[in-house]
Design a protein around this nucleic acid. Structure first.
Lengths: 144, 144
DNA sequence: CTAACTGCAAACGTTTTGCAACTTT
DNA sequence: AAAGTTGCAAAACGTTTGCAGTTAG
């Protein structure tokens, strides 16, 4: 695991390796060795991760249970966004800004859609007694 | 299990009990006793079902494995739409027309949004080599 | 010293699968 | 007889949890 980071265009804050710990602390997460290892992976090139992928990349440094716990913690602390596109796997998106997704149903691949490319003209009136959480738009595509 | 059907405003075709079999045959599904039992349940009052709910309602008439197999078959044949809102459960929507959903994250409840209440002004250009499958919009709401 | 965190393994709930038995034509 | 369908139990999958041991302030 390298300390050097490749910044992600719209992803996990493109922080330098030295400030990953600060980022966690700023978010109320105690920066342990395992959490730092996971955070460094997430700050890498790709924006969409499954728990399995993260676990494979961090390797034996971190147990699978800790990978799951940590990803859930990061979601809770606003460092990651959960993307639900298929029942068989959750994706974690390092880009927490509002945006949408292409999902390739054949290959399970996920791609960002910038907000302005899929403008929603109006939201429907919300049912009584609830508040808006998020609007998730998934454009499912398949090989043509 | 009654044979009488309560039609669903926008759901599984509001067919009479006598024609459920015809509907299956028209869709290329051999109308066996178990499939008819499930189809009759789906043609009932509610539009959104989990596999578990369907299994509970049809009861011992149909084994759980057959419930899952049949729901997947119905999706494949275009009689149902799969709605993925959480990794822990798939919903089956008897309304196969294009429309969107409210999802109550607290109670796991699903509600239709008519297409005209959530107009999408423009779709982004699709990546090369793929064709559009569906556009799924989930408006997540929570208790305010 | 205490509180928080980790790893392991076992549990979990949903869904799928293998196979023998049973329909249906 | 052949083809398709069913039920059961067991497996598979991703994920969570209980608990004992470890680490950090």
């Amino acid at each position: 695991m390298k300390d050097k980071l490749i910044s992600c265009s719209t992803g996990f804050p493109a922080v330098s390796a030295e400030t990953v710990g600060e980022l966690l602390e700023r978010s109320g997460v105690k920066p342990t060795a395992q959490r730092l290892a996971i955070a460094r992976v997430l700050a890498g090139a790709c924006c969409h991760w499954s728990a399995e992928q993260v676990g494979d990349v961090v390797g034996a440094e971190v147990s699978r249970a800790t990978v799951y716990n940590t990803l859930n913690l990061f979601v809770e602390k606003g460092l990651l966004r959960e993307v639900v596109v298929s029942q068989e796997k959750v994706f974690y998106d390092t880009n927490t800004a509002l945006h949408h997704h292409f999902y390739g149903v054949d290959d399970g691949h996920l791609m960002d859609i910038p907000l302005e490319q899929l403008p929603i003209a109006a939201l429907p009136p919300l049912p009584a007694g609830v508040v808006l959480d998020t609007v998730d738009v998934v454009v499912r595509v398949r090989r043509g």
